[in-house]
Design a protein around this nucleic acid. Sequence first.
DNA 1: TTGACATAGTGTCTCAGAGACACTATATTT
DNA 2: AAATATAGTGTCTCTGAGACACTATGTCAA
Lengths: 229, 229
Amino acid sequence: MPSPDLIKKPLFTVDSVLFTVQDNVLKVLMVKRAEAPYCRAWGLPGGFIDIDLDQNTDMTARRKLAAKTGFAPNYLAQLQVFSGLERDPRGFSVTLAYYALVAYQAVASHIETVEMACWIPVSELTELVIAFDHLQIIELARQRLQQKTLYSMLPVFCLPQQFTIGQLMAVIEAIIEKPIQRKSLMRRIEASEMFEVSNEKISSGGRLAQLYSLKPDANIINFERNLSI
Amino acid sequence: MPSPDLIKKPLFTVDSVLFTVQDNVLKVLMVKRAEAPYCRAWGLPGGFIDIDLDQNTDMTARRKLAAKTGFAPNYLAQLQVFSGLERDPRGFSVTLAYYALVAYQAVASHIETVEMACWIPVSELTELVIAFDHLQIIELARQRLQQKTLYSMLPVFCLPQQFTIGQLMAVIEAIIEKPIQRKSLMRRIEASEMFEVSNEKISSGGRLAQLYSLKPDANIINFERNLSI
DNA sequence: TTGACATAGTGTCTCAGAGACACTATATTT
DNA sequence: AAATATAGTGTCTCTGAGACACTATGTCAA
């Protein structure tokens, strides 16, 4: 039985919405829950802070993601805190949600059973039983990702270290669900000065495509205008 | 003495950076701490969630602000969570920081001693002893406020319900610390369709100024371009 | 009463960058 | 060699921010 003090403390957890783009489809990493509440439902990877292991909540998010998938996100940022009495049957709870991006790779299945962690297209989430308010959290994360895609180059974090304009364009279009102009993307790549051209080109069914990569020290800058919605 | 379980739990608090603009100066509400740690230093208004009083963390922020000032913010939004072992001498701590805007009004001094809560110009914060990492939190909140001011009408929440373009312009300039073009502001007011013209005008030392107010159901929209930095 | 001044608000030009889309370049496939 | 596919460029339009001169209308002082 917990102490009286403890009863008054809310549960505090850290959850992450890890996005990737595979085959031009935006997908989210979901984990099949093994414990109550919402046992056997799908939920976001996450858990409790471990004060001995985690320097801060960012580390909690990274540790939990690594435990479920075996890899580390290319980009990780805070989304928002969700709190309240209704969101967890155990009582008042507080969740710090992160959103993260990674270049597509298969989930390491050797860690746990194959069913444990899985990429799910965001458009198919409604067909599943989702734990807690995680569907809302994912929806908000998607909106934030879409917004940032309109005024930054965030989607590069869904690509491998070297990539072509065509790949970047495809990933952006998968995220914002609208076609964009290749020309606009080229202008932004030029203007941002964040990228360097490789001396390699790769084949893609037509003229060879120039490979680009993020400069080692590059900051992700924000443009002053959005792409059109 | 807390239970062994409790020792492992981080301290979780909610703090708010409440901004206002008075006499063309951006100010922050600071509270003089009465308890350790950082007794007698200045800190952000905030405190612990009270599960019996607060439906969620937003309510915690509002409750604590009301307790210190006697009024409610016009706008309140999450800033970011700050966490770690070093930020509080008592051990690992987690703070959810909010930022908020209010039209200037004197802090209700009847609630506590006059010195308890006080508007401090952000430019003068470095002259004070500030508790914890609250200076960093305020700095991040200021940056967020500046960014949002470039692409939204957020600064209206620093003004009374009815206001003139000149007042709005002054508040924006106090926040971003740059002059802006009245014409650009007029265009945005027109385009946003968020405001309605009053049938009153007020005197301001020259030609009478049109009074505007937010439409009752208006959402704060985001513009697709920033004002120039 | 009138003229100086202050603040409110408009007209209109320039400029940057997004959208559109035709055009060129260069690979693969048949 | 021709068809086709993808990469990349040239250039026009369009929107909205910046600049700034101009008009409008109030207050105040002589």
